[in-house]
Amino acid sequence: MNNPISHQDVFGILKDAGATILRSVDIGNGLFAAQWFNQNGEAAYDQPGHHTFSVYLNGGEAVQRIDKHGAQVGGAPGKICLLPEDHRSRWNIPQKLEMFHLYFDSQKIKSLALQIFDRDPRQVDLQDLTFEADAYAENILKHVILPLDWSERANKLALSSAGDLLLIHILKNYSQTQQNMPPVTGGLPPSICKKIADYLDSHFGDSISIDTMASLAGYSSFHFARMFKESFALPPHRYLEQLRIKKSKEMLRAKVTPLAQIAIACGYSSQAHFTARFKNAVGLTPKQFQKL
């Protein structure tokens, strides 16, 4: 997948410094994620123009940050770094490590600050953090983001939702917008529920993000996700997955469309991926279901 960020940013500098990109994904709406392997290298960032949220996955204990604040040592699995768009830093990487990066632009984080915290976007000032413990971010990564196949269209909604959860977490804990989130009571109005249900029924095979659905409903993505679950008893990505399985069953019963075409029509990138998801949900492969 092409890198939508400029060559002089964290992504481009790491690549030029010899780090290995294991996988990356453009989540959309100002979010980009990457998984890196690096060893015996150095990196220097000078106002990269975007924010970077890093989580160590393996190694990192010997990593050093060397800049005007003095030397800091002590990365480790689960530790995070937050590098604002205007920060400057130098890094020494003497041993092997693996990291996750979430890149996001200023417009994305300011939009969330306005929608969720009702704060002036100009007040958003992210902290510059190095080697902090963050169990919440580590759990989101381990249980949601890392297990997903980032290349699958069907996973875009789950990635988008997880990315927004991390950004809300960053806003709550690592910026000047710290405050309790306003409570959300009740679900979506019936008219909005019908609008969203009709949209998903017509576009279930498309690559759908949480921001697209929220915009259609007229809510922030964070509030929409919570209200959607209240109304439909499922998170948006789970509801969409169940809808795709339901639609695929209808096609399988008709015995007209080949399996490979059913897979693509229902939002899966391949027949193998469709078969795995279908069996996990139904307990049978599509062929076994069709024979019954």
Rank of each mutant, 00 (worst) to 15 (best):
Y268S: 05
C81W: 04
Y136K: 04
Q35N: 14
N155A: 04
Q271I: 14
R244P: 03
T130D: 11
S221Q: 15
G163N: 01
I245D: 13
L114F: 03
R226L: 09
M251P: 09
K15G: 10
V256R: 14
K156D: 05
A135N: 11
L188D: 14
D149I: 01
I208Y: 02
K246I: 12
I168Y: 03
L141T: 04
D211V: 02
D9M: 00
A154W: 01
R122M: 08
A113S: 12
D46P: 12
T285M: 09
L259P: 09
S6T: 15
H69L: 11
S106L: 09
P235E: 09
N173S: 02
F117G: 01
S207K: 10
T212C: 03
N3C: 15
D206S: 09
T275Y: 14
Q178M: 02
A133R: 02
L57W: 03
G18K: 11
H143C: 10
T52W: 05
F131G: 01
S161D: 13
P258D: 03
S248I: 02
A19G: 00
S54Y: 02
I208P: 05
A19W: 08
G28Q: 03
F232K: 09
T20I: 13
R88I: 14
S160K: 02
H7L: 15
K194H: 11
L200Q: 08
I5M: 07
I170Q: 04
K15V: 06
L243P: 03
G49W: 07
A62F: 06
S248P: 05
H51Y: 02
L167I: 01
A263Y: 09
D67C: 10
A154V: 08
R90C: 12
V55L: 13
